[in-house]
Write a protein that binds this DNA or RNA. Structure first.
Lengths: 240, 240
DNA sequence: ATCAGCTAATGGTTTAACCATTAGGAAGCT
DNA sequence: AGCTTCCTAATGGTTAAACCATTAGCTGAT
């Protein structure tokens, strides 16, 4: 019947007001909030309380705070940052294991690739091929670090191709975390890396042929092999 | 080559120390941090700065703060709360539309139900049937509010049945948001609600038969119809 | 035994001052 | 003129001490 009356904390009220202004579009990304000493007067509060509100907004990913003169709170465009951090916490706390994540990836990336194939434009294919050639070049130069970055970009770009921000966020969240927590455990491995490249070559070809089923199968198998490789390294148990 | 040297902010250092203690399990869920006036001495900082750190930890969903004597910062078990809020921001800011979410649901819930069928125990089926009967009772009493709550519980429980926390978090995040932002636009509709119940009946039967393909088809169709209904209401454009 | 009210611990807020960082301008050098 | 160096002021970061608001548990009167 009734819901708990929220206990009033001044800083929460400030957070809500600013958040609503951002969400409703009254404050646009890139614009700047007034200085703390002005805001505190506008909200009729103390600077400490106002700063607690800014901390919350910053943690929510709604603003970014810069130092020095002409610094201040700048409204950010919403991105996957908080979700990435949140998933990171779950992984690091052991709540989510590598296998859990792999199972999710197999299902999700299969769907993502299907959509990507359905919606691929010629420009998309070109962009993917460009990334593929970059990755290949790094592979030939044995530049492991850049190879991984480019590999991640390819996955993320396939997410972009779905034209659906939900899939984009999910894809970015997962791959940012893979890069952060797992890639250090996969030292340069010529054989596996070549497999990886071959998979992408096949996916691009399936895209050109408009064969979403094939593309989906390839990526699902790709993820399965990646997971097996990680399990081999005995990585399923806790790490830093 | 180099990464930007992080500018040191005292409260961030405090956040990291406490967060690491929580993640590593040194601080268990339910236990309580010392009082602010003690913590400030332990970290050798001021109370204002310490409170900024607590605000961040609170926003991350790692602690919960209670008032009064024997109040204080209590370590929380990590849950989907932050992700739910984060997705809520995306929806409310118009970054994610109802159709985007529906497309994601169709793919994801299909996978979730498949896994749920594969892993269903007799106890699971019993629990689902219990929820189903509750929902049916609310339907017959025309208790719209409780029907919706029970409907949400069924979806969430199917997520639980995957035994994979990633799917569980995703399922909870999506349905919490559906409940928050969309259910108000679906006034009691006897016809649609009966459809809804029939779908669940069929899913439970498919589970008993171990027919994951059928269950998956039903839920995907279920989501499609839900989305069509919402589009009919002309809901695709901005709301509060 | 019950209930009202007191007590003290704890989070919430305010104020005022000082420190650290930084963009931009002023001064001085070549 | 063009460059470098330094100063200045605006802005976020931090500190300190005091007071307010809430609440669990005790104390005592009924």
């Amino acid at each position: 019947m009734f819901i708990k009356a929220k206990q009033s904390r001044v800083f929460q009220d400030v957070v809500e007001q600013i958040q609503n202004a951002i969400i409703s579009g009254k404050l646009e990304p890139g614009s700047k909030l007034p200085a703390e000493r002005e805001l505190k007067d506008m909200f009729n509060t103390s600077r400490g309380t106002l700063r607690e509100a800014l901390r919350v907004l910053e943690q929510k990913g709604l603003i970014e705070i810069k130092l020095g003169v002409s610094g201040g709170a700048i409204i950010k465009r919403i991105d996957a940052g908080i979700m990435t951090e949140s998933l990171g916490l779950l992984i690091r706390s052991g709540e989510v294991s590598l296998e859990h994540l792999a199972e999710f990836r197999i299902k999700t990336e299969g769907s993502i690739v299907e959509l990507a194939v359905q919606r691929a434009t010629k420009k998309d294919i070109k962009e993917l091929e460009k990334l593929f050639n970059q990755a290949k070049a790094y592979y030939e130069q044995s530049d492991w670090e850049n190879f991984l970055l480019t590999d991640e970009k390819m996955h993320t770009y396939i997410g972009t191709m779905t034209r659906n921000p939900v899939f984009q966020f999910v894809q970015k969240t997962i791959h940012d975390n893979i890069h952060l927590y797992y890639s250090e455990f996969l030292p340069m491995d010529k054989e596996r890396t070549l497999e990886n490249l071959t998979d992408f070559k096949k996916i691009i070809e399936a895209m050109k042929a408009g064969d979403e089923r094939a593309a989906s199968e390839i990526i699902m198998d790709h993820v399965k092999r990646f997971n097996d490789k990680m399990l081999e390294k005995g990585l399923q148990k806790g790490k830093a």
